[in-house]
Measured scan of single mutants.
Amino acid sequence: NNDALSPAIRRLLAEWNLDASAIKGTGVGGRLTREDVEKHLAKA
Rank of each mutant, 00 (worst) to 15 (best):
N1G: 13
N1K: 07
N1A: 13
N1W: 12
N1S: 12
N1I: 13
N1Q: 13
N1Y: 09
N1T: 13
N1V: 14
N2V: 14
N2E: 14
N2R: 10
N2M: 13
N2D: 14
N2T: 13
N2W: 05
N2Y: 08
N2G: 13
D3M: 10
D3N: 10
D3R: 09
D3I: 11
D3S: 11
D3Y: 04
D3Q: 12
A4V: 12
A4F: 14
A4L: 13
A4G: 14
A4E: 14
A4I: 13
L5I: 13
L5V: 09
L5S: 04
L5K: 02
L5Q: 08
L5T: 06
L5N: 05
L5D: 06
L5H: 07
L5A: 06
S6A: 08
S6D: 15
S6F: 04
S6R: 05
S6L: 07
S6M: 05
S6E: 15
S6Y: 04
S6T: 12
P7V: 10
P7N: 10
P7E: 15
P7K: 08
P7Q: 13
P7G: 08
P7I: 10
P7Y: 06
A8P: 05
A8V: 08
A8D: 15
A8C: 10
A8Q: 10
A8W: 09
I9A: 02
I9R: 00
I9P: 00
I9G: 00
I9F: 03
I9N: 00
I9E: 03
I9T: 04
I9M: 06
I9S: 00
I9D: 03
I9V: 12
R10K: 14
R10I: 15
R10D: 12
R10S: 08
R10G: 07
R10T: 12
R10F: 06
R10N: 09
R10V: 14
R11T: 13
R11H: 14
R11Q: 15
R11V: 14
R11S: 11
R11E: 15
R11D: 15
R11K: 15
R11A: 15
R11N: 15
R11I: 12
L12N: 00
L12P: 03
L12D: 01
L12V: 04
L12W: 05
L12Q: 04
L12S: 00
L12H: 02
L12M: 08
L12A: 03
L13F: 04
L13Q: 01
L13D: 00
L13C: 15
L13S: 00
L13M: 05
L13W: 02
L13A: 00
L13G: 00
L13E: 01
L13R: 00
L13Y: 01
L13K: 01
A14S: 07
A14G: 05
A14Y: 08
A14D: 12
A14K: 11
A14C: 07
A14Q: 11
E15P: 00
E15V: 09
E15S: 08
E15M: 15
E15F: 15
E15Y: 15
E15A: 11
N17L: 06
N17R: 07
N17Y: 07
N17Q: 09
N17S: 10
N17W: 05
N17K: 10
L18W: 03
L18K: 02
L18R: 01
L18D: 01
L18M: 06
L18G: 04
L18F: 03
L18P: 01
L18V: 09
L18N: 02
D19E: 13
D19P: 07
D19T: 09
D19G: 04
D19S: 10
D19H: 09
D19L: 09
D19N: 08
D19A: 07
A20G: 07
A20K: 05
A20Y: 06
A20Q: 06
A20L: 08
A20M: 06
A20F: 06
A20D: 04
A20S: 07
S21H: 10
S21W: 07
S21K: 12
S21A: 13
S21M: 10
S21L: 08
S21V: 08
S21P: 05
S21Y: 07
S21T: 12
A22T: 11
A22E: 14
A22I: 09
A22D: 14
A22W: 11
A22Y: 07
A22M: 14
I23K: 00
I23H: 00
I23T: 01
I23Q: 02
I23P: 00
I23A: 01
I23G: 01
I23F: 04
I23Y: 01
K24W: 07
K24V: 14
K24P: 11
K24A: 11
K24F: 10
K24H: 10
K24C: 05
K24Q: 13
G25S: 05
G25K: 05
G25M: 03
G25W: 04
G25T: 05
G25E: 02
G25H: 07
G25R: 06
G25F: 03
G25Y: 02
G25L: 04
T26V: 03
T26M: 03
T26A: 03
T26G: 03
T26F: 03
T26P: 01
T26N: 04
T26E: 02
T26S: 09
T26I: 04
T26H: 04
T26L: 05
T26C: 00
G27E: 02
G27V: 02
G27D: 04
G27R: 01
G27A: 04
G27N: 02
G27F: 03
G27W: 02
V28E: 13
V28R: 10
V28K: 12
V28H: 11
V28C: 06
V28F: 12
V28L: 12
V28Q: 11
V28I: 14
V28P: 15
G29M: 06
G29Q: 07
G29F: 06
G29W: 05
G29N: 12
G29D: 12
G29Y: 04
G29I: 03
G29A: 09
G29L: 06
G29P: 03
G30Q: 04
G30Y: 01
G30E: 05
G30T: 02
G30F: 01
G30H: 04
G30N: 05
G30P: 02
G30L: 02
G30K: 03
R31M: 13
R31N: 08
R31W: 05
R31L: 12
R31F: 05
R31D: 05
R31Q: 13
R31A: 15
R31P: 02
R31V: 12
R31Y: 06
L32M: 05
L32W: 03
L32F: 04
L32E: 00
L32Y: 02
L32C: 04
L32K: 01
L32S: 00
L32G: 01
L32N: 00
L32H: 01
L32V: 10
T33V: 05
T33E: 04
T33Y: 03
T33F: 01
T33I: 05
T33H: 00
T33W: 01
T33L: 08
R34L: 15
R34S: 06
R34W: 15
R34H: 10
R34A: 12
R34V: 15
R34E: 11
R34D: 09
R34Y: 15
R34I: 15
R34M: 15
R34G: 05
R34T: 11
E35Y: 08
E35P: 05
E35D: 11
E35C: 09
E35W: 10
E35Q: 12
E35R: 10
E35K: 09
E35M: 08
E35V: 10
E35T: 09
E35I: 07
E35S: 09
D36S: 01
D36K: 00
D36R: 00
D36C: 01
D36H: 00
D36L: 02
D36V: 01
D36G: 00
D36W: 03
D36Y: 01
D36E: 01
V37A: 02
V37K: 00
V37L: 10
V37G: 00
V37I: 14
V37M: 03
V37D: 00
E38T: 07
E38G: 04
E38Y: 14
E38I: 14
E38R: 07
E38L: 15
K39H: 10
K39G: 09
K39W: 09
K39I: 11
K39F: 09
K39L: 13
K39S: 10
H40Q: 05
H40M: 06
H40G: 02
H40Y: 15
H40S: 04
H40C: 04
H40N: 03
H40T: 05
H40K: 03
H40E: 07
H40I: 08
H40R: 02
L41W: 08
L41R: 05
L41N: 04
L41I: 15
L41Q: 04
L41T: 03
A42D: 07
A42H: 10
A42S: 10
A42R: 11
A42Y: 08
A42M: 10
A42F: 07
A42L: 13
A42V: 08
A42K: 11
K43V: 11
K43R: 10
K43W: 12
K43M: 15
K43S: 14
K43T: 13
K43H: 12
A44W: 14
A44T: 13
A44H: 14
A44F: 15
A44S: 12
A44E: 12
A44M: 15
